[in-house]
Design a protein around this nucleic acid. Sequence first.
DNA 1: CGGTACTTTCACAAATTTGTGAAGTTAAGG
DNA 2: CCTTAACTTCACAAATTTGTGAAAGTACCG
Lengths: 195, 195
Amino acid sequence: MTTDGANVSERNADRTRSTAGTATETAPGRDPEAVSRFVERFASQLVEAGMQRMPARVFTALLSSDTGAMTSAELGEQLRISPAAVSGAVRYLSQQHMVSREREPGSRRDRYRVHSDQWYEAVTNRDAVLRRWEDALREGVQQLGADTPAGRRIAETLAFFEFLQGEIAQLMERWRARRAELFGEDRARDDRPKG
Amino acid sequence: MTTDGANVSERNADRTRSTAGTATETAPGRDPEAVSRFVERFASQLVEAGMQRMPARVFTALLSSDTGAMTSAELGEQLRISPAAVSGAVRYLSQQHMVSREREPGSRRDRYRVHSDQWYEAVTNRDAVLRRWEDALREGVQQLGADTPAGRRIAETLAFFEFLQGEIAQLMERWRARRAELFGEDRARDDRPKG
DNA sequence: CGGTACTTTCACAAATTTGTGAAGTTAAGG
DNA sequence: CCTTAACTTCACAAATTTGTGAAAGTACCG
């Protein structure tokens, strides 16, 4: 853990400001170590909340990249994980609609992209999850008997989730308005492939 | 559901523990197998959503019990798990405020209880979780630079969670109203100790 | 004070999950 | 076609998690 110490300045560290802040395609004062610290810290929170480790790390790496998109190789290098691990993580994230895959026409490599205007929609849109919960609960009410105390308790739980599902849709609608207000409607442009 | 006047069940519960009797408090039409099927099915959903197995099973067992409360022995017997497993699960659930522990004055055994009006408040009230996420994100904005594309993306994520936190409070307020409308204000009485 | 009835803690074996190297697959460019 | 770059799948070793029996701890009751 201690590790790092003073040491190993990456070539990046050499890059002083003297090199004119202009050609900053690759981010100006981007300290890889700071980025890594954030990635690991936020990913840990996601893991604690139930997400698998690799998907959490890959996702956070994408989230904290300037372009919002990285190749498999970049992800592997930054996170120090094998291509296999990247592949697995990315498959999971795609299934959850948290990242999308892009094929670059000229190249053989894929890019994985997080759309900042879509990823938490995917998270809150855990429609499928809620629906499965509700199915299980409905069945429970039947099996326990709607007129028993237990059945009533389950029915109330079911009603709560049904209520929740409706509320979430409205809530996201409100968020979109507030988001536009805070950041502007065109904010999402950063997340699109470069034009 | 109002109390018409036939408080028969109250006497039933008062049954003193005689030697031979196991907890034969099961309701009449209650098929243990059906109960078990529901418990396992719903618990699986919770596991899939990130909850540990034993807490999920214990919690669902409590949720689908008629009184909303069970002793360690009852839980162990129904779920076929050791006292140690019950202990661990219950500790977790208490920390999450999903069940509460009661000490019966006359007896040496604890009862664990789910309050149907409180457990999903605990779930939606993942205040602590949200706060930790927000902390990590705030730090990320700083480290990445608020004026970088990445920093802006993280800032937007942060804003979303802050928004969410505020919305949830109002949402639960609305739910309480709706719940009263659907089930009556006194619905929660089943979940309280008999007095 | 014990005696006793529970509950909790702890070390550990079993089961599960995780991430890797290597082989396999696909498709872009010659 | 063949080469080659990139991605995916697979078997497995390592690491982690899980649940248990047994010992230890607690607190009620006489």
